[in-house]
């Protein structure tokens, strides 16, 4: 059901396809969530868009019999659904100062006034020094 004529005799590429899809889906989500959350005036719109994309992708998975496409889209769809949740988690990081707020975004500007821990500085943008160092940015 999941195999086609392109499959080799001794090598099984489904694990490799799954690994590459997982790696690049996580990378894309990691970057996209941070970028979109930073510039979006609301988080519910991107949350709904990513949820819809995730559900749509999983729907295609259910009606696709191609073994590699089925695997890749299955992983991509679930990653998109997890990214939808990540918008809220990223906003919480902004509130705690664990990710930099964008003062040009009205939602972030409000967070900066309401949460003393929020900051526009990216505290993670440096090399490790090997000792506790809250003062080094």
């Amino acid at each position: 059901m999941y195999r086609d004529q392109g499959r080799g005799i001794s090598m099984n590429f489904i694990g490799m396809v799954a690994a590459l899809t997982a790696f690049f889906s996580v990378w894309f989500g990691h970057v996209a969530v941070r970028k979109i959350e930073s510039i979006s005036p609301t988080i519910w719109i991107p949350t709904i868009i990513f949820t819809a994309l995730g559900i749509l992708t999983e729907y295609f998975v259910l009606i696709t019999d191609h073994w590699l496409l089925n695997t890749a889209l299955g992983i991509l769809g679930i990653t998109l659904l997890f990214d939808a949740l990540e918008f809220t988690r990223q906003q919480n990081r902004i509130k705690k100062g664990h990710a930099p707020a964008n003062p040009d975004n009205p939602r972030h500007a409000k967070i900066l006034t309401e949460y003393p821990s929020a900051t526009t500085i990216d505290l993670l943008e440096r090399e490790p020094v090997g000792y506790p160092s809250t003062m080094i940015h």
Binding site: G15, M16, A18, A19, W67
Partner: peptide
């Protein structure tokens, strides 16, 4: 990930590949 290439069972190959990723 390389090991997943030599696992003929699809479920196991995927799980090992994703673990590698």
């Amino acid at each position: 990930i390389i090991a997943s290439l030599f696992i003929q069972n699809d479920w196991l190959s995927v799980l090992v590949g994703v673990l590698g990723a």
